[in-house]
Structure formats: C-alpha cells, structure tokens
Design a protein around this nucleic acid. Sequence first.
RNA 1: GCCGAAGUGGCGGAAUUGGUAGACGCGCUAGUUUCAGGGACUAGUGGACGUAUGUCUGUGGGAGUUCGAAUCUCCCCUUCGGCACCA
Length: 867
Amino acid sequence: MDERYHPGSIEDKWQKKWDEHNLFKVDEDPDKEKYYLLEMFPYPSGKIHIGHVRNYTIGDVVTRYKRMNGFNVIHPMGWDAFGMPAENAAIENNTHPAAWTYENIDYMRAQLKKMGFSYDWDREVATCRPEYYRWEQWLFLKMFENGMAYRKESYVNWCEKCQTVLANEQVEQDKCWRCSQVVQQKKLYQWYFKITDYAEDLLVHCDKLPGWPDKVTIMQKNWIGKSFGSELKFQIDGSDEDIIVFTTRPDTVFGATFMCLAPEHPLVETLSRGTEQEGAVAEFVNRISHQERSATGIEKYEKEGVFVGAHCINPATGEKIPVYTANFVLMEYGTGAIMSVPAGDQRDFEFARKYGLNIRVVVQPEGESLDGNTMPEAYTGPGIMVNSGEFNGMDNKSAIDAITQWLEMEGRGKKTVSFRLRDWGISRQRYWGTPIPIIHCADCGVVPVPEADLPIRLPEDANILPKGGSPLPTLAYFQKTDCPKCGRGDARRDTDTMDTFVESSWYYLRYCSPRYDRGMFDPDAVKYWMPVDQYIGGVEHAVLHLLYSRYFMRVLNTLGMIDFKEPFTRLLTQGMVCKETMTCPEHGYLFPFEAERKSADNLVCTKCGKPVEVGRVIKMSKSKKNVVDPNELLEQYGADVTRLFCLFAAPPERDLEWSEEGIEGSHRFINRVWRLAGECMKVVKGVTPYTGPADGLSKDAKALYIKANQTVKKVTEDIEKSFHFNTAISSVMELVNMMYTVDIESADGEMKSILAFGLENILLLLSPIVPHFCEELYALMGKESFILEQGWPSFREDALQTDEVVVVIQVNGKLRSKFTTGAGASKASIEERALADSKIQKHLEGKTIRKVIVIQKQQTLVNIVAN
RNA sequence: GCCGAAGUGGCGGAAUUGGUAGACGCGCUAGUUUCAGGGACUAGUGGACGUAUGUCUGUGGGAGUUCGAAUCUCCCCUUCGGCACCA
C-alpha cells in the first residue's frame, strides 16, 4: 500500500470497474421501492463548470446513499441541447450548431464520468435529437387539438439582439435574460400555451408541496399573482356600451373622478374617433407603443396620458367623468382599464395633479381630516367612509363587500379575481430549436401537420446567417409544402421554433423510457418511476422551468396520459459557488493564476507586477474571471477530494465560498484517512468487526465503540434529515481523530475488533461522498464486493451513551464549575454534589439560595439561583 | 416600495425540542520529526485584564419574556435574492 492516496490511477480503475459491472444501470423492479433522483440537466455549452460539479455531487451522494439503503434508484443524465448559444458559437467559429452541440456533449459526458457520478448512461437524452423532439411536436398537436395551444396577434417582448420573442418569464428587469438587451414591444402573431387555465390549480398546489423550499413556492405564488377584487361597469356617456374596470378597492368607487385605459385598449381608438382629441390620442398611442417596454430610470415613473374625448358615468355617483388613456395602465392585467381614485392611489394621485383633475377623499383615516386639494399624497390605508352616500361612516373594509353587493344588485358590478400570470408565448424566431408542426395555407389557414408526418425535422445542414437570425425562413425546401387539408401546393411551414423551456418541461418523463418509440414515454415505466422523489438544481429556475414543468404535468394529466400533477416531490435548490474577484489597475479582472502572492498581504499581477486588489466574494463567472476549472481540480486533487470539498465547505442550500486552502484541507483529510487505514490494516485485516453490546468492554475500547456508533447515527440523520453533508463529514472527522489517539500497534484483540468496526464504518459512511477512495480501501481490506452494494451501516441504540456525563454548574445562569458523574446519577445526588462544590460555595458566599434547577436532557446542568 | 432569506472568532461554518456558544475545517503561534522543500505529529488559539487559581465580556443594534436566550417576542440596522406602475 502506498504512503499516499493517488487519485489518478485509482479513480480510473474504479470507474472502469463500475462500468464493466453495469453498477448504475436500473430497470423497473416491482419488488423494490423506487427512488427517482434528478438533477437539472445542463446546457451543453462546452465544459462542465463548478456549479454543475456541486449540483451533481450532491445528487450523486444522495443516489449512492439511497442505493445502499435498498432503494431502486434511477439517476439519469442528459442534455438540454437546443438553444441560442449554439447559433452564436456557430457564427463565431464558422461551424454548425449541431456539430458544436454534439462535440460539447461528448466532451462534457467524459468530464462527468471522470467525476465518478453514478448515472445510468443508457438513459441519456439529448433534446436536439429528432427521436426526442418528435414527441414534443406530437404533444403540441394534441394541445392544439384540445385548445391548449393557440395563435394570436399581440404585443410581445422582442429582443433585437437575439432577434427573437421572449416569454414574460424570460424578461428580467425589462431586459433579455440572456443578453441583457432592453426588451421592446412588438406586435406579432405567436403561438401560446394556455397556462392561465391552470393558474388557480398551480397556485393552490403551491401549498401542497411540503418538500419544496418556501422561497420557491412563494416566488411562484407571487408570479401567478392572484388578487381578489371586483369588475365594475362604467357606462360610456351617450352610448349603451360599458367600460369594464378591475379594482381591488371597490370601496373607493365614489372617489373615482376619472378613468384610464391602456393605450392598447380597443376603446381608445373607438372613443376618440371623430373627436377633436383623435389626433392627439393617435400620436400618444403611437409614441407609447414604440417605447421600449419601459424606459429606464426616472422616466419610468413619469405618468402621462391624454383625454380620449369621451366621458363615462361613475356608477356610484352618477356623475360624468373624463376618460383618459395613460401609459401606466397595462393592457395585460385586469381588463386594461382602471377607475382612477386619486385620493386613494398614488399613481392616480400623481396623474390627477399633473392634469388638474378632481381629487375627492372617500376614505378618511381615523382622527384625521384629509382634503383633496391639500393632501400631499394619496391615502391608501384603512379608514372611515366619507362622501360615499349611504356608506358614509362605515369602515372601508366592510364597505368593500357592501358596495360590491350594492353595485351587483344594480347590475353594475361583480366580485372577481385577477391573475398576473399570462399565457406562455412559445414561438421563437430561432433556428436551433424544435420546429412548430404547423402549416399555413392560403385557403385553410392554420393546419396542423398530420401525426404520421412527424417528426418535422430541423434541417441540420442549414447555413447559419452571419448576422444572426434564423435561416429557416430562407430555406424554400423547408418551408414549401403541400397543404395536408386541401392539397394546395403553395402552403408553407411555420418557420418558428419552440421555446427551449418546452423541452425541459418533460425530459424527466423521457428518462423513464428513453428509447420508447410509440409515444412520449412508456406509461408503465412512468407509472413506476414518477414522480421525481428528489430534484436538485439552481434557484434561478424558480419561476421558469419549475413552473412550466408543473404546468406540463397538468396538461398531460388532463389529456389522461399520467395520473399525477406534480412532477417533483422534493426540491433542493443548491446555493451558488462563489469566489473573491481580483483586479489589477492595469489589466482589470484577473484569473486566480494571474495573481501571485508575494507575502501575506501583497498580491501582485503576474503580467505587470502591480498590486492586485481583492474584491468581494461573488458568484463565479467567466466575465469576472473568479473561476476555478473542474479539469484542473481533477488534475490536481482528483474527483473525490473535489467532491469532498464541495460538500464540506457549506450546507447545500447555501452559497459556497471556494477557497484554495479549503480544498487543501479536504485533501489532507483524505490522506489522513488513508494513513489511518494503512496503520489499522496492519493489525486489523481479516479481523471481524465487533458489533456486540458496549457493556463489558474495557474503557478505551468502549469509548471508541460508542463514538463509532454515535458517528453512524449522526451521519445517517444529517443525510436523512436535511442533506447536511458538512456536519456529517465533521462527525466522521471526529471519529478519525479519535482513532488516531489509539496505539494501534499494541492493540489487543478486543481493541482490534473495534478498530475494524471503526474503520469499516468510516469507509461505508464516506463512500457516497468519496466513492473511489473508499472502494480502494475497502478492497485493500480484503473485501471482494463493491462497497456500493453493501448495506448502509447501522448502529446500536445501546451503544450511544457514555458511562460518564459532565455536569455543568451555573450560578444565576453563569457557568462556574463542572464535575463528572455516572450517567445514571439521580437528580438529588447531582444537586447535592453541585452545592458542595468548592468553587460554587465561593460564589454563593453571602447569598441566599432561592431555587436550584437540575436539567438532565442532552446536557446535564445545575443552575443555582441565589441573591 | 412589496415579498423572502441571512447576519455567530482572523475565515468557512457548528450548536435553533431555550440548557457548557464557537463542533469540524482553514488560518495563525509554539514545539517535535536525519524535517532540503512540501508534508506529518503534539499543544495552544473569541476578546479584554491578570503571574495565576481566575474575573469581566461576547452570537448585527436596542428592549422584553425566562432560573437560563445565538435560539422565543417586539422595534431598528445591514447584506443578499425575487417582484416591481399588477389597479
């Protein structure tokens, strides 16, 4: 046995052995309890980054742990392979998206294998393969048939740089989530999935996902955004038509002194036509609709609008109020029209002040008297109703229902709810994606591709346009086709592709039967494996992928294809991997290797020798250069040490700060165990580990035996309860430290069998974390089978309690002394001894004992209250 | 602005059923090792005072509940994340 652990050859060896023995392959087995462990699959961008390493290490540990606990564990991996970076890379490197993608997949697969992850590679899926996306096209057709997919013209988020439409979920702070370009509004025909049909159901079930972090379900709830309110009808002056508004504050209807319509509201044009305002309105609407989704900065908050030239009747007061169109009213929310109550809403207030509109107070805060002419801002709080006819004097909360009921009787209103969630726009004007299986015919209009013609293959030989944008509309042979309905020869295919989030909404179903060719998935396989028991991935998908996936399962459920609605029973969102940034005054951001440490606090740039400034610890990113390359970690430390550090440095849900010294520490620990194992094996090899009761063992042997049992318990609980591997590893370290205190060479027979117990448990407990290392030592101990095929170790309940306990003595809550006593000592005897303690006596001098509290729980403690 | 999470040594982090604050690791200090270096091993390490048995102090800040609070309650501050004209 070598003095040191050499990861290179050992890790290679075990990866090969696992592979040869098909150790990670699984099939449905009705006799075994299944466990579906899923990690978010990566986009094949070129290389695995450290975030993947962390994510997949966590998943791998759980997989191996569950497997040792007897579960039939499915642990698949695949590729979210469609997407824009492939197109951009193709332009940059003069290659093709397909070639680039498949090369990346091959490279990254090899990287994952080197990390020793226990994937069943037979289940690998790449979403850019026709065998995959044909079933997505098939589902699209089913959804179309059932009214779940539809096409409409409306304003959409357009990213000029990416040359495509974006879903609402893909717009972050008015910017494209990929390239940060400010998004514009563009009117286009687009395909939509009717996710809003499930808004209520998605919302309700947020509270039925106890295995999800609250922050994720809260984000989803906020995104769905249900609000309770009323729809009120305002009759248009001189017409029978009504304008319907949505409001959450019907109690303030008496204070509605004007009305605002969204610029896109159809009535804006209708009402202004033929009035003297027609020109001004047209100019305004035109200007607003060409504005970026929202201008940045202060401009955003500047409210403006124009009078549309018509009035409507306030249903509560009967008075005529002017109708405006205003930039702050959103067409997509509510009804696109609001009743403006300047006294009770800050936006309406600002608008009213700007245009000199009447402000009437209808809710008066208790003990105050607001005046519409002098109040500095709107009052939105609770209060007493005024200027509201028969409702005067009521508190405004009761008035909400009372006024709604009254207006309902008048036929002018009703209770309703409104959602923020909008339908999912899935058309993308991109090439590298799933073609939408639709044909446009001059006679028949929109015609679905017949099922038998699927898949509509994405032409993989298309020349990528150097300026970006999809080449599909330029390809006559792709576009030109016969109409399946009437046979017209000049029909054309839809040249848009689907949002890549469509692929990731169901890939985990495909894993269950990845080569199935009679449908999206084999129903029996899905019945056995689904739902996913544990999903692990980044929190950035809280309202994208995770919401879409929940939606998709509802669609499939409605279509009768599956019998569940929630895809992921438990969700773990791991934290980011962070590192400090380093900047050189001359060269800007530096990679870690571009800074050289001259002394404790002198770091210089290797290029110019100038002092380097160490910045904040932030998420690793290429642009900030604060990255570590998994390849280098593998080279320098091997997979196991890398895995160990990822788990030890922080609990999984928290951000992890990468540190060079930290990983060195993990490296040291591995070698420490290696040496301990070497020492032990000299005397322990072939010795049967002791597993009997603790009673009757000699003092040192018993102490070690108890420690080992406690360690098994602690590690099991830490993994089972919360995946807190950092504390699990700590407790193994404690056991290792204790074993180091044993004089191994002169151990007697009893001690030998306990050392054997300790060592074997260390290997079993660490094996999910550092599997190659443990397999090697396990084999060196003379074991024949794989450690992964061993059962998870158990502990003896009767070997957890040490004979002696430390009693701490406090006086008035302050620690003053301690003593040791037998574990079974009585309260009375402990109290007696505590009071007799000489240090305690000193502290009690001149005081009267008021009370003595003796606690015998996790700790044994005496608190003497005296004054 | 609204919603959420988090603030503990020089650092990463333990301890949250209220019960020895700082496990484990990093770093640092001293020592040991035929120790080139790296490494390994032993001891120490929250702060202040003290030769010392020790005393005081200490979990973002301030109040409170309690025999006892990192942990529970209230107020405030800071940082991070999400949403943001949502009527």
